[in-house]
């Protein structure tokens, strides 16, 4: 099933009313959408865990969506929140290879761009964005990231710490 805004919103409204069939279809579509959403922004070894954590968050917080509002910006806010939380808990990803999947909302590129993780990361100063991308997403060590960026090791650590803190305050920013 195609994960477009109108379909997802309709399924979610039915799910809030307790329709299990609609909910199964919704979660399946969200699972695929989330894989695209997180692709290249999390180590492949962590992708399954993060998608599942987000589905659980969607389940427990499903009352926080209002049928009068769009669905994908709500789901993306939850996904970003779980993503930042995941990065904060992650010490080091052990794989460097990245998935090449596409976003599940190709038919709505404007919305997809506004709610994407790239957009969120792009709000950070370049040095913080780079440190987080290299260490927390691509899984380089602090020393490797320092070498790659020309920053000192302690500066890489500071940039990661400050960047993650800033991200946590900007989850809902476009």
């Amino acid at each position: 099933m195609k994960a477009d805004e109108a379909t997802l919103a309709r399924l979610m409204a039915l799910s809030q009313a307790g329709d299990k069939l609609a909910y199964a279809a919704l979660l399946d579509a969200c699972q695929r959408w989330l894989r695209g959403y997180y692709s290249r922004r999390i180590a492949p070894s962590s992708l399954d865990d993060l998608v599942q954590e987000t589905l659980i968050a969607l389940h427990t917080k499903r009352a926080s969506w209002d049928a009068t509002r769009p669905f994908l910006p709500w789901l993306a806010a939850i996904a970003r929140y779980r993503w930042v939380d995941h990065l904060r808990r992650l010490y080091r990803a052990d794989e460097h290879e990245l998935h090449e999947e596409t976003m599940g909302t190709d038919d709505e590129p404007a919305i997809a761009a506004r709610i994407s993780i790239e957009r969120l990361l792009g709000l950070l100063p370049p040095a913080q964005e780079q440190a987080i991308a290299l260490v927390k997403i691509e899984g380089l060590s602090i020393a490797e990231a320092a070498q790659a960026t020309g920053q000192s090791e302690s500066l890489v650590k500071v940039n990661i710490h400050r960047g993650l803190k800033k991200l946590a305050h900007m989850i809902e920013k476009e």
Binding site: S15, Q16, A17, G18, K20, Y23, A24, L27, D28, Q31, D48, D49, V51, Q52, E53, L55, I56, H59, R62, A63, S64, W65, D66, A67
Partner: peptide
């Protein structure tokens, strides 16, 4: 949190536990 089950199993579990909810209204 470390997950060991498949996403399909998780979805089945979440669907099984679905209860109707009252959405949070601004008003």
């Amino acid at each position: 949190m470390t997950m060991h089950r498949s996403s399909d199993a998780l979805i089945a579990e979440l669907v099984g536990g679905l209860e109707p909810v009252r959405p949070l209204r601004f008003g």
